[in-house]
Structures are given as C-alpha cells and as structure tokens.
Write a protein that binds this DNA or RNA. Structure first.
Lengths: 218, 218
DNA sequence: GAATGAATGGGGATTTTTCCCCTTTTCAAA
DNA sequence: TTTGAAAAGGGGAAAAATCCCCATTCATTC
C-alpha cells in the first residue's frame, strides 16, 4: 500500500522535526519533507513533481504566513488537502483559514491520537473539524446577525491600514497625515471600528486587534 | 549505562508527545513522563520518589505557568536541572526565567541537534545558553545603565497591578477606584512607567506590556 | 536630629480622544 | 439620468490622557 504523503510547513524546527517523527510512526503516512515557511513550500512544490496528499500548515510564520500560503495553494495546487496547524484558537483566525480553503484546523495542543484521526479523516472525507473548532464555528453562527457581520466580514483595506497604525504610538492626527486623509475621516474609521468590534476605546481596539491576529502583536 | 531521565511540562500535547519521541530517540535520555502544567508536575514530583534529572518546562501554560512552577522547583527540588522551553524570545521573559533558576532557555524553533546538545550540556555543565539567548543577555547588559535598570528591575506590585488594568478598557479614573488610590497617584504610576519603558502613550504601554509578556495578551 | 528618597496626592494647562450631528463628493446601480 | 449609498470630511463639545511643578507623609540612613 502506498503511504499518504505529508508535507510540514512550520518555522519551529523542533516542533516540525518532532511532528515528522510522529507522522512517520503512523503506518499510513509518511513525511515527504518539511519547510520553514510559505516561500520555501512554494519553491519545493514548483520544483518537484511529487505532489503531497496533505500539507500541515502553520499560520504564524515569518517571511510568508499561513494565510498567504493557503491562498497560493488554493490557486495553484487545489487538490492538496491542507490542515491548518496553530496555537491560535481565536474565532477570526479559524474562520479566516477555513474560508481560504483549509480542510481542517488543528490546535497544537490536541492529543496525538486526535491528530492521527484528523489525518485519516482528511484523506477519507476531505475534511476534519475538531469538536472545539466546530463549536467555534457554531458560536460564530449563533450570534445575532450584527455580530456575524462584525466578525465575519473582512475589513476594508483602508480600515485595516488604519487599524495597524492605531496599534502604534501615533496620534490620530499623525495617522491621518500618514494615510493622506483628513483627521475627520480617520475619526470616522475609528468610530466605525469601535462599533464593529464593540469596543469603547482605542485601547480596546488595540487589544481586540492583537487578540484576533488582525495585526502582528510582536 | 543508566539513561538520564527527562520530564516534559507542556500543555501542547501534540508537541509534548512529539518531543517525547525525539528525546527517547537519543541513547542517553529517556522521558519519565509528561504533564500539562505546573500543578500536575508538582503532584507527580510529590508522589513519586523517582526524581528526574532534567525538566523541560514550557512557560506559557494555563493553570500554573512556567514562572510559578520554576519558583516551586527552585524551592523544593533544587537539584533538578530545568531547561525553559518557549516560543517567546523576548528579553524580559528570558531574563526572568534564568533569574528564577532555569539552567537554559530553549526556543521552540531550534534545531533538534541543538536540542540534543542542550540536553548534554545541561547534564555535563549544569548550564546551556544558546547563542541567541547569550546574545540577548549580552545586549541587556550592554545597554546603558538606565536601560539595564529599566529592563532588569522587576516592577513593584502596585505598578504591575496598574499595568494590568491599563491593558483594559478602563479609564484611569476607574483604575484609581479599583485600586483604591487617588487618580493623581495613578497618574504618577503612569508617568513612571512611561519613562521606565520609554513609551509615549498608553497605547505604547499596552503594546510594550503585551510584547514582553508582562500581562496576558490573550 | 537632618537629609534623603519613595509613595501618595494636588493644581492646572494642553493635547488627544471620543462622540454626535452634519455636508459634500463619488460612484455605481436602477 | 437620477438616485441612493458609501466614502470623505467638518463643527463643536465633553471626557480622557498627558505633562509639569509641587506638598505631604513616612521610613531609612547618615
């Protein structure tokens, strides 16, 4: 029986190496290779005709993160089953990744047996949702429509730009100059995002953005 | 030859399991057991007379984190060599952990061979500093005295309490009420921390606190 | 006892943030 | 071509944050 091939994309070498050992311990799976980020993955995929069955994709990586990488895979190698792999259990991150086409979302603190189950499920069913991820998805649907819009709708480019700058020590006046807009327009963005995220102050906005990975916190 | 015994403390089961496989693959080491947090570790240490040689200690854990656990080990099982294990490469975290008595600080993205080297070093030399950690330590010493004081001196309890509350949507007035102090005293803390951390605004303070794990960002 | 320094707190001014109500411009759908 | 919604921008005021200078208390040290 031919083993299902797995590729690991994770910048934490220790984790990647350990994970590779774990996967190889399963009879049905074997690791083709592992790479440190999306760029390296794409290079490997382009230069090799050996297409993996499954990609285990970390989200938080330097150089090219999981979201960008997922987009590329969806566009160029749609047949590969991608399982997102992250420590981040925030709703927005999970939803974003699944919308981009990931077939499952594994939290790094799951039990190895569940991990094994996930690999099998994604091969046989083309999808794997853990209970926790399914619950998260349900919760996001059960909220009122307002919240659904709030958490599901992607931010416009200008809003995201503003949000990133709001997560710095710049004043709104400086942000306005930076974005070549009137301070009043910036004030409009601010008010809009306050309502959108249900926060009461710029501090709340920054905390929300960081907690939900809308900006790089580090 | 008796193998050196290793205990893993990490809430990421997948990582812990994988790491266990890696350690067991080394001839000189074997994993005694792994636990999910500090509380479980202490329970195991107390009920078993089999004292491990090395503890691999994650820092970010629910229930009982790495700092608290380290303090307990230093107090009650000082003979055990503890290697801190974290994704967090921020200066304050590293220094805090080493001051608490960790014999080394491993970043989770290190190469498995370096990991192997670290295990051996901590057995033979009682200490292992990676180049990156050593550099971080050096940088923290090479800064001017002001910075050394700023980054090395632990915060007073009141300041830390204020800092945590400042990382919420509360106004200073509300924080003052919460801490049963005059708003003016709070203003003093604020100004002091601004200078201490070289930030210009409350936003800057929040970002600094989160980036340096002075508060829980999530 | 005097000096030093930290913790606490006040006065007061300026800047920034926050909020609400409004107008103009733009741009695409009807 | 109209119309309607979204984006951009404005006025103005209240609240919060920021800053600087200073007073009191209290313990420690010289």
């Amino acid at each position: 029986m031919k083993k299902h091939s797995v590729v690991i994309v994770d910048d934490h070498l220790l984790f990647a190496q350990s994970l590779q050992g774990l996967v190889n311990a399963f009879d049905e799976f074997e690791v083709l290779y592992h790479v440190k980020n999306g760029s390296e993955l794409i290079k490997k995929l382009l230069e090799s005709e050996n297409v993996p069955d499954i990609i285990l994709l970390d989200i938080n990586m330097p150089v090219m993160n999981g979201f960008e990488t997922m987009e590329w895979i969806k566009e160029n190698r749609p047949s590969i089953q991608v399982l997102a792999l992250s420590m981040d259990d925030h709703e927005e991150t999970i939803i974003k990744m699944l919308r981009l086409g990931a077939k499952g979302y594994l939290l790094k603190d799951i039990h190895p047996e569940i991990f094994y189950k996930a690999l099998n499920e994604v091969i046989s069913n083309g999808i794997y949702y853990s209970e926790r991820v399914a619950t998260t998805l349900l919760n996001s649907l059960h909220g009122n429509d307002e919240k659904e819009v709030a958490n599901g709708k992607p931010l416009k480019d200008t809003e995201l730009t503003f949000l990133k700058l709001a997560c710095t020590e710049m004043t709104y006046k400086e942000i306005a100059q930076e974005m070549c807009l009137s301070p009043k327009t910036i004030d409009g963005y601010r008010e809009s995002l306050f309502k959108h995220f249900k926060v009461k102050s710029r501090i709340g906005l920054v905390l929300y953005a960081i907690r939900n990975n809308l900006v790089n916190s580090k």
